[in-house]
Design a protein around this nucleic acid. Sequence first.
DNA 1: GGAAAAATGACAACTTGGTTGTCATGAATG
DNA 2: CATTCATGACAACCAAGTTGTCATTTTTCC
Lengths: 161, 161
Amino acid sequence: MTDARTPHDAPLAPDELADRLTQVFALVGPLYRRVHRKVEQAAPLEGLSAGVRAVLDLLREHGPMTVPQMGRAQALSRQFVQRMVNEAAAQGLVEAIPNPAHQRSSLIRLTDAGGAAITAVLARERALLRQVGGDLSRADVDACTKVLARMLALFDDVDVN
Amino acid sequence: MTDARTPHDAPLAPDELADRLTQVFALVGPLYRRVHRKVEQAAPLEGLSAGVRAVLDLLREHGPMTVPQMGRAQALSRQFVQRMVNEAAAQGLVEAIPNPAHQRSSLIRLTDAGGAAITAVLARERALLRQVGGDLSRADVDACTKVLARMLALFDDVDVN
DNA sequence: GGAAAAATGACAACTTGGTTGTCATGAATG
DNA sequence: CATTCATGACAACCAAGTTGTCATTTTTCC
């Protein structure tokens, strides 16, 4: 994170912080919806729904996992993840391999096709994001990540199912 | 925004920027979903759906507007906004007043009840956000806002309908 | 001023992300 | 061993949001 400290780096008082974070969240909503829509519009091209995309992305970072593990990792219901995994499997993007640690719950792994697909999607997204020009510095982005992570942590305890 | 410049404030190269923004977006998704769920769980208490909440919030900041204006402001389909407005009107949170500039498309305005409702909701949300403790500085939050706004601008051209 | 084009309201069908419920079975735990 | 917990499979359901269509009103433009 940022360890070189900036001038107005004094931690904010909770009240003002809450105020500012409300503003941040007012941005998150529209951003999420717009990107979601844009991704959906492009989905037919790739053949990936947002859910499948998320599964592939997870497997790409974390390596093979079981369905319930993925659900917990993303705070999604296990049933939903299962559906997405089934869908991905039907498209040959993902496959089940025996789980040494559990006979019944097999590990899900990216196939070559799946790896290629998620790589392609990420590349397209990166290309889009490269158009966010301007004067954003590393410090800006780091701070953004930090703030969002902090907010996310607040909602960690929301248990699903 | 930040005008006092920090050490590592050099604008990032587009490639690295895209990389970092991908990470940012990986946070936005889960955050949005989690908050959405949490808000939904609390919704019965307030009787406000997320859509109605968004409409009230918009009217609170911008004052009376027509339905299509709201749709454009949030990049939502006019039909969807209309549905939310109807729902809000049915709950007495919102009312139509004559539009001097347009005979057919009336202005939508918060009622007293609507104002009270959105104020209460915002207060509750602020109370939650006040728990995001830690060392977040004004600079951090400003940077976050800046980054998100920049990303949002990229998707402004996504036309709806 | 009048004709064509765009904007609006109303209503309906549909898609998708996501949850909840249930049941049978296999795994962990006392 | 008995019980409890985790998993897969399947289904019903909900909410957010879009798309389509039609009639009417407004705007634009010749």
